Simulated scan of single mutants.
Amino acid sequence: MAPRTRKSERRTEALSRERIIEAAVELLDTAGEGGLTFRALTERLATGPGAIYWHVANKDELLDAATDAVVAAALATEPAGSPDSPRDALNAVALGLFDAIDEHPWLATQLATQFSRGPWKSVTPRILESIGRQVRALGVPERRWFTVATVLMHYILGAAGQNAVNGRAHGPGVNRDEFLGAVSTAWKELDPDDYPFTRAVADQMPGHDDREEFLAGIALILAGITAVPPPPRSHRARR
């Protein structure tokens, strides 16, 4: 039997780590962050803890790796329109993250944690790069790249996270149309002097498409890029 080369050892190690992360994602999806323990992971993988610790030092590293793996898969979504269109590519990035956050109940919290506590880790640059490349391709002036890209990033993650919360707040047995219809009825009964706008849009609540509304928000942001001039630089910024 030929001796194992260093290259093949690295490949085997990467595959072993991938399987550990895959199992971690499965546990997170079914049991949440509290259910992700090294004991549960060893049972799922039918291995000893030493084999896992060889690849992953602790739970924080495992959560980071699971988050990065899900985000990387989400960002690999192909555009529904033209692959050469920055807008179509940006919508693909947005919908990939939208669907991933909806599918994985733990993801929104982990993204918020990584953005606030570890923005230098892989997840934040990965998302920012995917959005920023399309911002640059749209012809946004370089001095506005950071502002436009981060506004889009915060909108995408915030709206997707809120949608996921809304979808799970009422449980699987709740009929969406009936729930939205009840909300619409309640809005129509509000005081017309205090809530004229809310009453006016009440009929638009039932039957709206969450994904279409989500993409409409991105379109509004992109429209504002050209419609709104950049704010003047402050004296402090010019120093």
Rank of each mutant, 00 (worst) to 15 (best):
A237M: 07
V123K: 07
I20Y: 01
A237N: 04
G181M: 00
A72H: 10
L107V: 01
R87K: 11
E178W: 05
A169T: 04
A92R: 03
I127N: 02
L190I: 07
D193P: 01
R211P: 04
L36M: 01
L63Q: 10
V123I: 04
E129W: 11
T226K: 00
E13F: 05
K121V: 03
V93G: 06
A219Y: 03
D210K: 11
A160Q: 08
L36I: 01
K188M: 07
H104Q: 10
V25G: 09
T198R: 08
A94S: 12
R19M: 07
T185P: 00
I156C: 09
P232D: 05
P231V: 14
A200D: 14
P125C: 08
M153V: 06
D68E: 15
I101N: 01
G161Q: 02
W120Q: 14
L97K: 00
V56I: 13
G132W: 01
V123F: 03
T5W: 15
Q114K: 04
V25Y: 06
A92Q: 00
F179N: 10
A89K: 08
N58H: 13
V25Q: 12
E61I: 08
E43P: 10
L128K: 01
E78C: 12
A216N: 11
D99P: 10
L97V: 07
I221V: 13
L138Q: 10
A51L: 14
P105M: 06
E61Y: 01
L28P: 00
T147S: 12
A216E: 12
K188W: 02
A74L: 04
Q110W: 05
S122N: 13
Y53K: 06
L220C: 12
I101W: 06
G35V: 03
A51M: 14
A94F: 11
H154Q: 14
M1E: 15
A89V: 03
E13I: 00
L190Y: 07
T77P: 13
V56Y: 02
G181Y: 04
A100S: 06
S116P: 03
P49V: 01
W187K: 15
D68M: 05
I52C: 05
G139Y: 02
R136M: 11
E129Q: 11
P230S: 12
A74V: 01
V135A: 02
R199G: 06
A72G: 05
